[in-house]
């Protein structure tokens, strides 16, 4: 369980984690305190259009520390991890279950389907 404040961005498609980072048009941003408890309000962001590059720059601008997504291309994955972010990809599940699981365990296993 990480002991530092986190700013998490989930890439969404409706109620589910979007299967593709580059095609997503919705995102959810949430913050936690250093004990892993949610703080502040959840922010839902509607992107102007699907673009992996735009999403990457939004992530950096917002100071996100953790990204949760479905499929992401190697180039974008490396870029974000090189910038010091933790990227949890290949995630399948509803955003509600994924958040619950992540806050409880501090990790997400791509093998587990959270529905």
């Amino acid at each position: 369980m990480p002991h530092f404040p986190m700013k998490i961005l989930l890439v969404l498609q409706g109620a589910w984690i979007a299967p593709r980072f580059d095609l997503a048009t919705e995102a959810l941003i949430m913050q936690t305190d250093d004990k892993g408890n949610p703080t502040g309000e959840l922010r839902e962001i509607l992107l102007p259009g699907p673009s992996a590059e735009e999403l990457c720059s939004l992530i950096l601008k917002e100071g996100i520390t953790h990204v949760i997504c479905g499929g992401i291309e190697e180039g974008h994955y490396r870029y974000l991890t090189w910038k010091g972010l933790k990227v949890m990809d290949h995630i399948i599940g509803t955003s509600k279950e994924v958040v619950r699981h992540f806050l409880a365990c501090g990790e997400l296993d791509p093998e587990t389907i959270l529905r």
């Binding site: 589910w16 593709r20 479905g70 499929g71 290949h90 399948i92 389907i113």
Partner: peptide, 20 residues
């Protein structure tokens, strides 16, 4: 896909294959 068949049973195909 990197997914085991039994793990994705019942899921829509585009979630499993991550298609465009």
């Amino acid at each position: 896909s990197g997914r085991r068949s039994e793990a994705v049973t019942g899921l829509p195909l585009n979630l499993v294959l991550r298609t465009s």
